[in-house]
Simulated assay, not measured.
Amino acid sequence: METQESINYQRIADAINYIRLNFKEQPNLDEVAEKVNLSPFHFQRMFTEWAGISPKKFLQYLSVEYAKGILKEKQATLFDAAFETGLSGTGRLHDLFINIEGMTPAEYKNGGKALTINYSFAESPFGNILVASTVKGICYLAFADDKQEAFSQLQAQFANATYHQVVDMTQQNALFIFKRDWSKLSNIKLHLKGTAFQLKVWEALLRIPMGGLYTYGSLAQNISMPNASRAVGSAVGDNPVAFLIPCHRVIRSTGDFGQYHWGATRKSAMIGWEAAQVNKIAI
Rank of each mutant, 00 (worst) to 15 (best):
N17D: 11
Q277I: 10
T116M: 10
A33F: 01
F126N: 01
Q221W: 04
W50M: 10
V241T: 07
I19C: 08
V166Y: 15
P226G: 10
G112S: 13
F79A: 08
A33M: 04
K189V: 03
G112N: 09
S268E: 14
K109F: 13
V167I: 08
N187L: 15
Q171I: 06
L38A: 11
S54R: 07
S234V: 13
N8Q: 09
G263L: 02
L199P: 00
T48P: 09
G137V: 05
T215Q: 09
A76S: 03
H42F: 09
S39Y: 05
T265F: 01
N37R: 04
W273D: 13
I100M: 05
A82I: 11
S88L: 00
S120T: 10
D146Y: 02
T265K: 02
C139S: 05
N239E: 05
I70C: 08
K280R: 13
H164F: 13
V278R: 11
W182Y: 10
E31F: 06
L185I: 12
N128Q: 15
L185A: 10
G69A: 01
F257V: 15
Y216K: 01
G86C: 07
L154C: 06
L38W: 08
E31T: 12
N99R: 02
Y61W: 11
A242T: 09
S54W: 03
I7Y: 13
K74V: 12
R45H: 11
T104L: 07
K56I: 04
K184D: 07
L175D: 03
A220W: 07
I70V: 14
V201Y: 12
S229N: 11
T170H: 11
S124E: 03
L154E: 05
R11Y: 07
L29Y: 11
F41D: 12
S234D: 12
D95R: 03
I117L: 02
N22F: 04
G194C: 05
T254W: 02
G86Q: 08
I208T: 07
E25Y: 08
T3M: 08
W273N: 13
S234M: 11
A150N: 00
T195I: 04
P40R: 11
I117Q: 04
L190R: 02
F143R: 09
